[in-house]
Structure formats: structure tokens, C-alpha cells
Design a binder for these strands. Structure first.
Length: 441
RNA sequence: GUGGCUAUGGUGUAAUGGUAACACUAGAGGUUGUGGUCCUCUCGUCUCGGGUUCGAUUCCCGAUAGCCACCCCA
């Protein structure tokens, strides 16, 4: 008998089930309730800190003119060259989903005349970014960043402050085993000079390089320094370092940044091969890495100074610094380190109903409780009292309020203490008061 | 974009050339209106599409997705 039943059931399903592959666009993920707890936790801490540091929140559109990223991020960077979601609107505008946050914020600074505001202007933002990359853990086509920017202040203390803020956010969140990597990549004056020096050096040693590095030499020479091949590392070890070839202004600026960092007592590592992949950076650049992982480093976040960006985009000459971090990466980092948020779903009281009359009463009672700031749970769809009490138990409720046929008619409620099992009948009129009293106790 | 590895119920894992086991989670029950322990039952066309085979979840090919390295970055 049971076997026959089973077979029939299966065949039933066979016919009903359509084979439509339901899946999100590659590299884009749903963020489900259990994870949202962690997201909220991270964002709350980050927002609070930014507010404390005097930043105001800004939101800019996800879509910008493609030209903005060409000019801002740099046309020959990987990000805009091959990773942008670019398309033409019906009105023939070339637009792109933002691959990063700074360009949009900088655009908003210019467009809204913020140069006339009291300087510096400090802004923070959060939201989705889009990059058409091959997805991997911690690397998605849609990911979310939290970032902060300071416009109109060229003082090196501000560089240190933004690094400090970035570090502090991770501290607050509870990601403590991080290392701050710092470097200066000079300005439009001294960087080209250094680049040439570096290329000249490497060209002399070209036969000692790996295949990748031979390619890097012509495409992205600054990347030569952090090749992981043994022989290349040897060549790199005696290569000229940017820090030794900064112009006087950049040199002093960097020296001061480091002094301020020392003053703030945060440890950092000078990393002469730190480059960053966006064109707009000048002088200070930094990244935050997690400790312990040798070799392939994925940074949690990073940033730097970009004194030329606003001018490049058509604004007045305005110095700026900023940073951003990836929320997904922070979430993953927390999860992998065994982070456990106290996210027990808890309801002060649970409403149990038996029959339609009682359901009506429950609906109204629920509303009354909510208005009195009492966290109430219910399960209107469930029938048996047993399963409803089970829910009450799962929600860790102190009290269960039970309304059956009889109570519905009498306009009363059974109030049950879940711990002791003691029950009492209370009139509907004073139920809220009674619940309040018991929750306090 | 290049190369490699993987793909079993909601989750985490087994086993097998003859249609699948275990744990957890979830749902329904364990006599008529009472939870947390316990017990029973239910939930998988073994990612999809081809091929080899009498027969494939198991072998082969392709697609898709995930992961790893490179590239790059958050």
C-alpha cells in the first residue's frame, strides 16, 4: 500500500515539475536573512564611525556616463578596459554600471558645487559595484563597497586619518588580524621618471624574467615588483624602489604620513610593490590585508590619495583622499573566523490560536502588542495547538497567549508562562497590561 | 580572459555499472485544546543535455555553476 502511494506521488511530480533552470545571473548573489544580520552589524559600525569622524552620507546613481570612468578611473586600466558593464540607452547615451565608487562621488562633488562648501568635504557611501570578472570566492560581478572620501585637504595628516578610519572600522567590526600596507606612488612629476628607471633596469635583466614578467614590462611595469616567481623576486630585490625616487614634495608628504601613523600607534608595513589598479591615485596608497595568508593576498579594502582626479574630471584643482572596503569580503572573513552573532530570533510572547474566531482575535491582539513595543510572534496558518506551542518554544518566548473557541467567545485570553507552565485566564481588556507586567518581572 | 579541480535531498556528508545511506534542519502526527526530551512518517526524476551500455547517479563528451591558480581587485 505505502509503496504504491509513493510511486504515484513521484510520477505526479514528474509531470508538474518544469525544467526551467532558475538561477541568478553569474557572479551575482542573493543576500538572505541569516546573512543580513552580519551585513547590518558591519554597516552599523562603519556608519557610526564615519559619523563620528564628521563624514556625511552620500548616495550616487549606480549608472554613470561611461566617459566618467574612462576619464576618472583610466581608460587603460583593466577595470574599465574589460570589466565594465557598458551599454547604450534608448536615448543613445553611453552609460556604465559603476565599477567603483570614487568616480561617482567626485562627479557629485563637482556637479553640486561642493568646492564652495566649507572645506574639507567629507563623504561616505555604500552600495553595489559591478565588474565583469570571472567569479571566485570573495570576488563577484556585483559586490558591495563601503567607502569614504575627503575632498579639499592636501595635508598629510588627512592621509593618516583616512587610513586610521579604515583600520578602525575593521577593529570595531572585530576583524583584528590585519596588516596595513602603505606605499607612495608619487605624482605626475616623479612617477614617470621612476617608471622609466624601472623599465631600464628590467630591460637589462630581461632574460632572467618569467614569461609573465616579460609581458608586464611593456604593459604594467609597476607590477613587475610583486611577481611570485623565485627568479623574478631576485631581480626585484635589487630593483630601484619608488620611495627612493620621489620628488621632494612627495617625499616629504609621505614621510609626514608615516609620522602621523606612528603617532596614531597603528602598525603598518612599507610595501614598495603596492600599486593599485586605478589610474587616479597619486602619492599615498594603502591596502588592508588579512594576516597569515602568504602569497596570494586578497585585500579587504584599500585606498589612497588622488589629487588630480577632480581636475581631470573638469573641476577645480582639488586634493582628495579616500578608501573603500568590500562588504562581502568582510562578511566572509567574519564567518570564517567563527563569528557568531547573537541572532537568536526571540519573541517576547507567542500568540496561539484555535479556529477562525480565535484568528480574528489574534490579528487584533497582535496589533495591540506591536503598538506597545512587545515583540510578538504568531503562526496564523498552523492548526494544532501543539505545533504552535512548539513555535513558541523555538522563539524562546516567555509567554504564550492562547485563544481557543471558548476564549474567543468570552473575550478572554489564556496566558501561559512557558517556563513554569502555569496558566491563567485574563480578560482581553487587561491583557496588554498583564503581559507588560510579566515581561518586566 | 587563460589553465585546473568539483557538482548527490533545505544543509553537511556516504555508497554503488542494476534508481541511493547517514546526520542535522523543516513539515505532519504520536487519539479528542498545550511546547522544550523521545518515537513514527514526509521531503532527492543523484545540476542539465548528449554518448557508451541490456541497464548510468556511478564511465565518456558538452553545457552550466561553484571553487583554485594566473590576471586583476573589494
Amino acid at each position: 500500500m505505502p509503496r504504491v502511494k509513493k510511486i504515484e506521488k513521484k510520477e505526479d511530480k514528474k509531470h508538474r515539475k518544469k525544467k526551467v533552470p532558475v538561477q541568478a545571473v553569474r557572479g551575482m548573489n542573493d543576500i538572505l536573512p541569516p546573512e543580513q544580520f552580519i551585513w547590518d552589524y558591519i554597516l552599523e559600525k562603519a556608519r557610526k564611525l564615519c559619523n563620528d569622524f564628521g563624514f556625511g552620507r552620500i548616495e550616487t546613481p549606480i549608472l554613470e556616463h561611461t566617459e566618467l570612468f574612462y576619464r576618472g578611473v583610466g581608460q587603460i586600466t583593466d577595470i574599465v578596459e574589460k570589466e565594465m558593464y557598458t551599454f547604450e540607452t534608448q536615448g543613445k547615451d553611453a552609460v556604465s554600471l559603476r565599477p567603483e565608487g570614487t568616480a561617482g562621488v567626485a562627479r557629485a562633488y563637482i556637479e553640486n558645487g561642493m568646492s564652495k562648501w566649507s572645506q574639507p568635504v567629507k563623504l561616505f557611501y555604500e552600495g553595489p559595484m559591478f565588474r565583469y570578472e570571472k567569479p571566485q570566492a570573495g570576488r563577484y560581478r556585483q559586490h558591495h563597497q563601503f567607502g569614504a572620501e575627503i575632498f579639499g585637504d592636501e595635508c598629510s595628516a588627512v592621509d593618516a586619518q583616512i587610513i586610521y578610519l579604515a583600520w578602525k572600522i575593521f577593529q570595531k567590526i572585530g576583524i583584528k588580524n590585519t596588516t596595513i600596507q602603505v606605499n607612495s606612488i608619487g605624482c605626475s612629476e616623479c612617477r614617470p621618471v621612476y617608471k622609466k628607471l624601472l623599465v631600464d633596469y628590467y630591460e637589462m635583466k630581461i632574460n632572467k624574467l618569467c614569461l609573465d614578467c616579460k609581458r608586464r614590462l611593456s604593459e604594467n611595469p609597476l607590477r613587475l615588483l610583486d611577481c611570485k616567481e623565485e627568479k623574478c623576486m631576485q631581480v626585484a630585490s635589487s630593483a630601484p624602489q619608488i620611495i627612493d625616487h620621489l620628488c621632494e614634495g612627495c617625499h616629504d608628504h609621505f614621510k609626514n604620513v608615516l609620522e602621523f601613523l606612528d603617532e596614531l600607534e597603528i602598525s603598518y608595513v612599507l610595501n614598495s610593490s603596492l600599486v593599485r589598479g586605478l589610474d587616479y591615485y597619486t602619492k599615498t596608497v594603502f591596502e588592508i590585508w588579512e594576516d597569515g595568508v602568504e602569497g596570494a593576498q586578497t585585500s579587504l579594502g584599500g585606498g589612497g590619495r588622488y589629487n588630480d582626479l577632480i581636475r581631470t574630471l573638469g573641476g577645480e584643482d582639488t586634493p582628495a583622499v579616500g578608501f573603500s572596503f568590500g562588504i562581502e569580503r568582510a562578511v566572509e572573513r567574519l564567518l570564517s573566523s567563527g563569528f557568531h552573532l547573537e541572532q537568536k530570533i526571540r519573541k517576547d510572547v507567542f500568540l496561539v490560536q484555535l479556529g477562525n474566531m480565535a484568528r480574528k482575535k489574534i490579528l487584533r491582539l497582535f496589533d495591540k502588542l506591536i503598538d506597545s513595543n512587545i515583540v510578538a510572534g504568531e503562526s496564523l496558518g498552523r492548526g494544532s495547538i501543539k505545533s504552535q506551542l512548539r513555535m513558541a518554544n523555538r522563539y524562546n518566548s516567555k509567554l504564550a497567549l492562547i485563544i481557543g473557541q471558548k476564549e474567543a467567545l468570552d473575550d478572554t485570553v489564556i496566558i501561559r508562562d512557558m517556563e513554569s507552565g502555569m496558566q491563567e485566564v485574563v480578560t482581553m481588556e487587561c491583557i496588554v497590561q498583564e503581559v507588560k507586567k510579566r515581561l518586566k518581572a
